[in-house]
C-alpha cells in the first residue's frame, strides 16, 4: 500500500511538469506579449519596457519557465492584472462560496440519483424504466443554460420563491437563502446523466450470482436490494463522485455566474473575459493538481471499500 502510494505520488511529477509546460506554452508563447495588454491604448515604449521587466517577460524562455515553477511551488502568483488583488487571496476568499453550493449539491444529487437508479434498475425493462430513461435522454439534450434561464425566470423572477441572485455575509443566510435555487438547478442538471450511469452500475450488480444466492436463502427483496446490491453498487458511485469534484469546482461557473455567487468558477470566467492570465494560470495548475490527488484518493478508497481490488 505504502509502496503503491509512493509510486503514484512519484508519477505526479511528470504529469504536473507536463501541465506546467502546457500552461506555460499557452500563456507565454501563444498568448503574446502581455505588456501591450496591460499598458492599454495610451502607452509609450518606456512604460511597456517597464512592465515587461516587472513581469519578467524580457528574460529568455528558460528563465521565464523557472519563474513560473517558483511561483507554483511558493503558491505566490503575484497580483491579478485587472483588480490587483493577490491571486492567493482570490483563492482563499472564493473557495468558501463555491463549496457552500457544491457540497450540498453533490450530496443531494448523488442520493437522489442513486435512489432513482436503484428503482429503475429493479424494474428494468418495464414501462417505468423506459419512460424514465427516455426522459433522461431528453433531459440531457437540453442545454444547462436553458435549465438555469428557465428556473431562474420561473422560480425566482415570476414566482418569487427565491432571490433572483446575490450573496450575503452569513453562512446560514447564504446556504438557505441564496444557495437554494442554484442547488436545485444543479441537481436538475446532473440528475439525468447520473441516473443513466448509476443504473448501469446497479444492473451490473443485479445480475450477479450473489444476488441469486441471497434470494435463494429467502432474504426479503428489501434486504437484497438495500443491503447486498446497494453496498456493491455504491463502490463505483462513490469513486465516480470523487473524481467529479475538481471538474465541478471550475465547472460550476455557469451557475455561479448567473446567480452572482462569488466562487472560483465565476472568477475563472471573469479572468478569461479580462485576459487576466495570472488567475487562469493559477486555477489551471492547482485544479490539475487537485484532480490528480483526488484520482489517487478515489483509487485508494476503492481499495478500502472493495478488498478484492488489487492495486498495481
Amino acid at each position: 500500500m505504502t509502496a503503491y502510494v509512493a509510486r503514484r505520488l512519484w508519477q505526479f511529477f511528470p504529469t504536473l511538469l507536463g501541465v506546467v509546460l502546457l500552461v506555460f506554452c499557452l500563456f507565454n508563447w501563444v498568448g503574446g506579449d502581455p505588456a501591450y495588454m496591460l499598458a492599454g491604448k495610451i502607452s509609450n515604449p518606456e512604460q511597456i519596457e517597464n512592465i515587461r521587466r516587472q513581469l519578467g517577460v524580457d528574460q529568455p524562455y528558460a528563465i521565464q519557465l523557472w519563474i513560473f515553477i517558483k511561483q507554483i511551488a511558493s503558491g505566490d502568483f503575484g497580483a491579478s492584472w485587472s483588480t490587483n488583488e493577490r491571486v492567493s487571496d482570490i483563492f482563499v476568499t472564493r473557495l468558501g462560496p463555491s463549496l457552500t453550493v457544491l457540497v450540498p449539491l453533490l450530496v443531494i444529487s448523488t442520493l437522489l440519483a442513486m435512489a432513482a437508479a436503484m428503482l429503475v434498475a429493479y424494474v428494468r425493462g418495464s414501462l417505468t424504466d423506459r419512460a424514465i430513461m427516455i426522459g433522461c435522454t431528453v433531459g440531457q439534450s437540453v442545454s444547462i443554460l436553458v435549465y438555469i434561464l428557465v428556473f431562474q425566470y420561473v422560480l425566482a423572477y415570476q414566482l418569487g420563491w427565491f432571490p433572483v441572485q446575490g450573496w450575503g455575509a452569513g453562512f446560514a443566510e447564504n446556504l438557505l437563502r441564496y444557495s437554494a435555487l442554484p442547488i436545485i438547478v444543479g441537481v436538475a442538471v446532473s440528475l439525468a446523466p447520473d441516473i443513466r450511469l448509476y443504473r448501469s452500475f446497479f444492473l451490473d450488480e443485479i445480475n450477479q450470482d450473489y444476488v441469486r444466492t441471497a434470494r435463494a436463502k429467502g432474504l426479503s427483496e428489501h434486504r437484497v436490494m438495500w443491503v447486498h446490491v446497494l453496498r456493491n453498487a455504491a463502490i463505483p458511485i462513490v469513486t465516480n463522485v470523487m473524481i467529479q469534484v475538481p471538474g465541478l469546482l471550475a465547472g460550476a461557473f455557469l451557475i455561479e455566474r448567473f446567480f452572482s455567487i462569488p466562487g472560483i468558477g465565476r472568477e475563472v470566467i471573469l479572468a478569461v473575459e479580462r485576459s487576466d492570465f495570472p488567475v487562469i494560470k493559477a486555477v489551471t495548475v492547482y485544479v490539475a493538481l487537485a484532480t490528480m490527488i483526488l484520482n489517487l484518493a478515489a483509487d485508494l478508497l476503492y481499495r478500502v471499500l472493495d478488498p478484492r481490488v488489487q492495486l498495481k
Binding site: 501541465v19 471538474g247 471550475a250 461557473f253 470566467i269 492570465f277 489551471t284 490528480m292
Partner: peptide
Amino acid sequence: NWLYSVFTSIPYLLLVLAIAAVVN
C-alpha cells in the same frame, strides 16, 4: 500516455476556457 494524462488532469471546460482566453 503522458500527453493523455496531462490533458485529462485539467478539467475539460477549464482547459477550453484557458485556451479561449489565450487565443482571444
